[in-house]
Computed example of a mutant assay.
Amino acid sequence: MKPCLSFLLVLALASACRQPATHSPAAVEAAMSHYDSLIRKTDADSIAWIYTADGSLGNIAHGRDSIRRFLQTFKNVRVLEVSSTTKNITITADTAFQTGAYTQTALVNGKDTAHVRGSYEAEWLWGEKEGWKIRRMTTHPE
């Protein structure tokens, strides 16, 4: 085989093995940024829908309805700021594992300010129609 043909074959194989743009760390980061924006809005319904149907929020809530009910108990909390920083993302097929750190500032009962920070682990699943959804999210407050 001629050298230029073998080079083209290597390029074609590399392109075929490349993950789709939706399966990139940047796409998972975008999904996490969307999650952060929903936390900031304290939108329990939308937050529940970013989870898979059987998704888990730590050991506290399992399934969208349970997650929604749990989050609705925080009606006295107004999130002022939230941010997350990714430390690592590993993607295998349609599953992404993400670790990082988060900070939140919230107003409780309209008068007390709470500052929370810690680390998180998220397992995301890709669905053709739904995009990235959280299968499991665990947080470890400091």
Rank of each mutant, 00 (worst) to 15 (best):
Asp54Arg: 02
Gly55Thr: 01
Ser56Arg: 04
Gly58Met: 03
Gly58Cys: 10
Asn59Thr: 08
Ala61Glu: 00
Ala61Val: 14
Ala61Pro: 06
Gly63Asn: 09
Gly63Ser: 12
Arg64Thr: 02
Ser66Asp: 07
Ser66Arg: 05
Ser66Ile: 06
Ile67Asn: 08
Ile67Trp: 11
Arg68Glu: 08
Arg68Pro: 11
Phe70Leu: 09
Gln72Ala: 08
Gln72Pro: 01
Phe74Ala: 14
Lys75Val: 05
Lys75Pro: 02
Asn76Cys: 03
Asn76Leu: 12
Arg78Gln: 15
Arg78Cys: 02
Val79Pro: 02
Leu80Glu: 10
Glu81Gln: 15
Val82Asn: 11
Ser83Cys: 02
Ser84Thr: 05
Ser84His: 11
Ser84Leu: 09
Ser84Ile: 02
Thr86Cys: 15
Thr86Val: 15
Thr86Ala: 08
Lys87Pro: 00
Lys87Arg: 09
Lys87Asn: 14
Asn88Ser: 13
Thr90Ile: 13
Thr90Asp: 13
Ile91Gln: 09
Thr92Phe: 03
Ala93Leu: 06
Ala93Asn: 01
Ala93Lys: 09
Asp94Leu: 12
Thr95Ile: 14
Thr95Ala: 09
Ala96Pro: 03
Ala96Gly: 09
Ala96Arg: 01
Phe97Tyr: 15
Gln98Asp: 10
Ala101Arg: 01
Ala101Glu: 07
Thr103His: 11
Gln104Glu: 10
Thr105Trp: 00
Thr105Val: 15
Ala106Asp: 06
Leu107Glu: 07
Asn109Thr: 00
Asn109Arg: 05
Gly110Thr: 08
Lys111Pro: 03
Asp112Val: 04
Asp112Ala: 11
His115Ile: 11
His115Asp: 15
His115Glu: 11
His115Met: 14
Val116Phe: 13
Val116Gln: 14
